[in-house]
Amino acid sequence: MSISTQDPELLPEDDAPPDLSIQYLKREDSFLTVCRCFSGITAISALLCVVANVFSAIHAFKNGNDIFGGVLRCYAIVIALFVAVAESEWQRIFQFWRILEYWAGRGMLQVFVGVMTRALSDLESGGKALVILQQLSSYMLLGCGLLYIFSGILCIGHLKRARMKKAKSREEALRDLEELEQRRKELQSLLVRRN
């Protein structure tokens, strides 16, 4: 097998490299984009639960009449923060909490935080804005959790993990392709200089 050092435009059509546009190869998977948007909405809902529970805990400790409710709200804050961090899909969390890798498990935790935020809401103290924040954040997280549970039962989480693995290998192949293209251009410029 001999390697031809001719100009690429002079190569026969069978030997010409396929014309693959890098923009075509870099196209985004729309399913993963939707999953990222939903994950962002869930993280925002969890952070709203954190804010609502922080204000409720401050109000409970300030009055001094609801110490146990304040402690429960502190637990709700920690768990809601954990839900928000889990939505980032940080692999370190999944090493210790494998159940959160599965959507049904993640959804159950979100439902728990949503119900806890709603159950601990102060209807008579804290003002109308705090009550609206508590109800909005709890119902948003509750809805996200139920959707996660339903999607987990339908194995959509498994589909997402498979597509993420495929996208990662595609990204690595694309990086290799760009490096090869760069190397090919460097070699062509060397050939032109020598001729």
Rank of each mutant, 00 (worst) to 15 (best):
S88H: 09
S137H: 10
L11K: 07
A162Q: 14
F38L: 13
R193G: 14
F94Q: 09
S137E: 07
Y148P: 00
Y148W: 10
K128N: 14
E181R: 14
V115P: 02
Q23Y: 11
G157W: 02
L147Q: 07
S39Q: 08
K26S: 09
C144N: 03
L133E: 07
D14Q: 13
S151A: 15
A43Q: 03
V51I: 12
G70Q: 01
Y24S: 11
T117P: 00
G157Q: 00
P12G: 09
M164A: 11
D66A: 07
K26C: 10
L133W: 00
L32R: 02
P18W: 00
V54M: 05
R118V: 09
A60I: 03
L47Y: 04
N65H: 08
L180N: 12
L20R: 04
L187I: 13
Q110A: 08
C35G: 00
C35T: 02
V113N: 00
R118F: 11
P8G: 02
R184E: 11
F68M: 10
A173P: 09
E89W: 03
D15K: 12
K160P: 01
S137K: 05
Q6H: 08
A52S: 07
C49K: 00
R92T: 03
H59L: 12
Q6Y: 07
G126V: 07
C144D: 02
F31C: 04
L123M: 11
D7N: 14
N63M: 04
F31Q: 03
C155F: 14
Y24T: 11
N65S: 10
D176L: 15
L191R: 08
S45A: 15
L190M: 11
K62P: 03
L180P: 03
Q188D: 12
C37H: 13
D176A: 15
Y139M: 15
A43I: 01
A84F: 01
V78G: 04
F68E: 10
S45I: 04
W97A: 14
L120P: 01
E9K: 09
Y139F: 14
E186F: 09
F68Y: 09
Y139I: 13
L123N: 12
G107V: 11
I132E: 12
S125G: 13
E171C: 13
G145E: 01
V51W: 01
I77M: 01
S121M: 13
C155H: 13
E89H: 10
T117V: 14
L120V: 07
W90D: 11
L100M: 12
L25Q: 10
L191M: 10
Q134E: 12
D29G: 07
L72R: 06
S88P: 04
T5A: 15
